[in-house]
């Protein structure tokens, strides 16, 4: 069944059961996000897709569309709020893009461009986060982890369904951990998929460095906005 909702004062037709973030994309309205992956269960961890629904701020990936819903996406106050959320992530970890393997393919960086971030207004923390290299084929560059939990929920041992990644500790002590035994069972394709799923340059494939030159990297060739509006899954 289809019905109409209002996004930024425009009436659009949406399908029942659809998530607001997808319905917006299908109607040409880009909502930035970092933890959501189209087609996968919603995580709702990053809040970067915050919009105003019927006057209340909420994460667009967590909301199924309802008839008559009134949504503000690009209203300046909500847009500014999303921008601040992204900026906070940059001062929370260590993001040295010029030396990052994921640069040009990184969703955090691409989203920062979309929200027109130039500098984070928050004090940069420069936390000390140890790199993890115990697994045979995976590095964890913890400086860059944004705790989106994509890897925790979506990367699992095929046999047992057990999680391979987990977040230990809370707040400033939070740390992404890897089950080395289970990680070593992953096929090269699964390792590659895990590295691709990580929105930032935290999960890295050992032996793979800078693949494409500047100018021909994923988001150089086609922006994150265009990819999302065309319904690409990551």
């Amino acid at each position: 069944m289809s019905f109409t909702i209002t996004i930024d004062k425009r009436k659009v037709l949406v399908d029942e059961g659809c998530t607001l973030i997808d319905a917006a994309a299908d109607n040409g309205v880009f909502i930035p996000n970092l933890c959501y992956t189209r087609g996968k269960p919603c995580l709702g961890t990053c809040r970067v897709c915050s919009v105003r629904v019927n006057g209340k701020v909420t994460a667009a990936c967590t909301v199924p569309v309802q008839p008559g819903m009134v949504v503000d996406v690009n209203e300046p106050e909500v847009a500014e709020m999303r921008k601040l959320l992204v900026e906070a992530l940059f001062s929370e970890g260590n993001h040295n893009c010029p030396s990052c393997e994921k640069s040009g393919r990184c969703e955090l960086q691409a989203v920062a461009y979309e929200v027109e971030m130039t500098a984070s207004p928050f004090p940069y923390r420069f936390p000390k986060r140890e790199r993890e290299d115990a697994a045979d084929h995976i590095f964890l560059e913890r400086d860059r982890c944004i705790f989106c939990q994509r890897c925790v929920e979506h990367v699992r041992d095929e046999e047992t369904g057990q999680a391979i990644f987990a977040i230990h500790g809370r707040g400033t002590k939070a740390r992404i951990e890897i089950d080395v035994g289970l990680a070593n069972k992953l096929t090269p394709e699964q390792v590659h998929a895990a590295a691709e799923l990580c929105p930032v340059g935290c999960i890295l494939e050992k032996g793979v460095g800078f693949e494409d030159p500047m100018g021909s990297r994923k988001f150089d060739v086609k922006s994150l906005r265009r990819r999302m509006l065309e319904g690409e899954t990551s």
Partner: peptide, 11 residues
């Protein structure tokens, strides 16, 4: 001042 996405670059 404006920094549209296609001009912005962190690297």
């Amino acid at each position: 001042f404006s920094m549209p996405p296609d001009f912005n670059r962190f690297d």
